[in-house]
Write a protein that binds this DNA or RNA. Structure first.
Lengths: 149, 149
DNA sequence: CAGGATCCCGCTAGATACTG
DNA sequence: CAGTATCTAGCGGGATCCTG
């Protein structure tokens, strides 16, 4: 009888990388994906169903145009949007498709790898939306307990 | 017959906040929790079981001392550790406990709210560790396809 | 339409020194 | 031990102008 379960062994076998260690390259990757714009872009590209009406296939991640993303992510600068999308493309999380119309049409869609990250990262956005009130209440308590001065 | 399922209605009812909107306060909260150090601190405080041996209760989130956290999160500066912990405390995600020994002992532990965030954020760290190889391969392909120059 | 290039400011993260 | 205080360099990120 083993001291570890099969699930634990699997988890450990996969974890040759440890983001707790500054020297581990997974630390830098964690830094990259722990980003507001990454979360929002992935959320936009991964959301299907009622939140995003009018897309073609119901089961596949919808492709979105650059301008669509820019409209969806209010307040993002074109620089940050482009930069984020390039980074995601380089990391294999999104596919960039250029259609030579005039003017040119560029669409972005999640890869399978990007979809897998979307599934975990969407939770962060949803958590923020769901628990904002509790966080605000806590801040108010904290700030009134020790007045800022 | 409703056009939306009960689950969809619930999700929408909760989502009075929308982080896609720059004006929505949940956007700022998303920005705060989309942070490398937040992810790592929560991961450290939330991890129980074989990853962190020697804690007292097996089911409760373990309390950790400041120095323990500093040792675990290699490369973090004391400034960032303190700052991150203060922010998490203010937001109601961790509890800071001061024990008047000499020298003083300070421990941190997750609140229920913090535990709920930990459950979603732990996935991000694990994703980075699990998929780093794929990301690296993608980067190499991308960079060789278009040489940096 | 979908960016590329450039300028520039602000704030943040790190290093260092000091303390109850 | 667990911080606080101060300084500074660096760069993240916005604004603006230009283009295939």
């Amino acid at each position: 009888m083993p001291t570890r379960t099969a699930a634990q062994q699997r988890a450990q076998a996969r974890a040759e990388y440890d983001a707790f260690l500054a020297s581990c390259p997974s630390r830098q990757l964690l830094d990259r994906i722990s980003d507001k714009w990454v979360a929002l872009v992935l959320a936009a590209l991964g959301s299907d169903g009622p939140g995003r009406p009018g897309h073609d296939r119901a089961d596949a991640p919808p492709a979105m145009r650059y301008s669509e993303l820019a409209r969806r992510l209010t307040g993002i600068s074109q620089k940050m949007l482009t930069q984020t999308l390039r980074s995601l493309e380089r990391d294999g999380l999104v596919i960039r498709t250029v259609t030579p119309t005039v003017p040119v049409t560029v669409t972005y869609e999640l890869t399978d790898l990007g979809l897998s990250l979307h599934r975990v990262v969407r939770g962060v956005k949803e958590w923020a939306e769901a628990h904002l009130d509790e966080v605000r209440a806590s801040r108010e308590r904290y700030d009134t307990a020790r007045p800022p001065g």
